[in-house]
Amino acid sequence: MSRPEIEIRGLHKSFGDNHVLRGIDLEIGQGEVVCVIGPSGSGKSTLLRCVNLLEEPSQGQVVVGGTEVTDPDVDIDAVRRRIGMVFQQFNLFPHLTVTENLTLPQRRVLRRGKAEAARVAAQNLQRVGLAEKADAYPSSLSGGQQQRVAIARALAMGPEVMLFDEPTSALDPELVGDVLAVMRMLAQEGMTMMVVTHEMTFAREVADRVVFMDGGVVVEDGAPEQVISHPRHERTRHFLSRLLDPAMADVEEGTSDQVGKDA
């Protein structure tokens, strides 16, 4: 592995008085799959959104593919074309068909021709197994199908990096598998991926590294086997035990579990 694909140095982010990220250093190599886990309010989504500057960091540096994203003079639209993002709420364009969702960004942003855009769209719908939904509107699809279309839409732009912001959290449990299967396929194809998730099985089996965040800092960073199965820190152990066996958790006060804080 030569230069890291994503490099985060000394990253801080505050929303008013709320200091969400308190100095994050993180490197993600080319083709590496990194899962970011942690309690809600720990800042993991904010960290992800800082990578493509949907959130403006208060301090620190983010470099993606050799370009400093946080440089005020950088052409952020050009950088974002190389970074695909998948949202918890899918965010498909509801006024466009599935195919148009994939072709419009290619045509408007990449200036691809009509035929070329249609070809790339069809190819990526095929990849996520939704070729037969090409002419449907998003509202007629299940959550899992919508999320796969959203992944295909990001892939159609030919990104070098994919960011996933809790991609399965808004799905009915029985639909999670289809989305994870697509993500697993991407990982096997060598895509660089940063995934904020609560899917521990996915993290354990697919991720090269797992990063545990709490209170705006990286608490633990290592192989999934180590972080998930043999966590070194008490906070990691505590979080995992609550996640893996929620029925056994005790009522507690003053944890980092800030209701509704995690955006």
């Binding site: 949907l54 974002r80 695909g84 993002m85 965010n91 498909l92 364009f93 960004p105 959203a150």
Partner: peptide, 15 residues
């Protein structure tokens, strides 16, 4: 129009 629509568009590289 939900905020996520603008975010999705921006993340795809739309100005």
């Amino acid at each position: 129009v939900p905020k996520g629509q603008m975010e999705a568009a921006r993340s795809l590289g739309f100005s």
